[in-house]
Amino acid sequence: MSGKRISLTLKVWRQESAKDAGKMATYEVKDINDEMSFLEMLDVLNEQLVTKGERPITFDHDCREGICGACGFVINGHAHSKEKEITVCQLHMRKFQDGETLVLEPWRAKAFPVLQDLMVDRSAFDRIQAAGGYTSVHTGSAVDANSILIPKVDADAAFDAATCIGCGACVASCKNASAMLFVGAKVSQFALLPQGQVERERRVKAMVERMDAEGFGNCTNEYECEAACPKGISVTNIARMNREFLKAAVTDQG
C-alpha cells in the first residue's frame, strides 16, 4: 500500500446534451491518493465541481467491479485505458504518474450518440440482441437440463464468447466503429451450442442486418477490438460469424 499523492491535468469532453456541440475542458485534480480507483478520482473531482457550483462530469458506471459493462470511456486514446483486460472502473490511480495529462473522451460512434459528457447511448446493442440473440424457448417448455449433452470444449468456448459485457469498447477502439466483435461473440455462443442450432441461420442474418442498420462500420481485420476488450474476447468469434453468415447465405431459404 503506497498511498502516494499525485496531481493530474484532465482534459475532458463536456457536452450538455445530444443536441449540443461539445468541447474539451481542462481540470486540475490535486493531491489524489493513488490507491483510489479512476472513477473515485472522478467522484472527488465531481464533488469539488458541485461545491464550486459547476455541473459535474457525467459518465455511466454501476457495479464498479468490471462485470456490468456500464462504464467506459477513452483515456489517452485507449478504450478503458491502456491496461489490458480491464474496464475503467477497475483502473487505479497508481497506474499514473504525478503531473500526467489525461484526455478523456466518450466512445465515438454514430451508433453510440453522446448523451452527456462521457455518457453515450448504447441501445443499438440491445436492438441487435433483440434481432436474434436468443433461443426461442418459452418459459416452461424446456426439457431436462441433462438431456442436452454438450462437450466440455464446446461449453467452454461458448462461455468464452458469452463473457461479453456489452460495454462497447470494441466499437470505441475500432477505427471503423465496427460492432463485429460484439455481434460475433453472441452469434458464436449460440453457434457452438446445440440449443442454438435450430435458429442458427436466421439468427446470424438477422443480427448482422440489424448491426448494419444501426450504422456501425465494417471490419478491416485489425483486431483493435480484441486488444481493447476487457474480457479478452477473441476475433475468432468474428471469423466464426463470417462463416456462419456465408453458410446461411448459401443454405438458408429467403
Binding site: K82, A109, K175, N176, N218, E224, A228
Partner: peptide, 20 residues
C-alpha cells in the same frame, strides 16, 4: 460507411492490436 460510422473523430486515438 466506415467514415460515416464515426462522424466525430477522437482528439487522441492510439492504435493497437494488429493495426499496422
Amino acid at each position: 460507411e466506415n467514415r460515416a460510422a464515426r462522424p466525430t473523430p477522437y482528439v487522441m486515438k492510439k492504435t493497437f492490436g494488429e493495426s499496422t
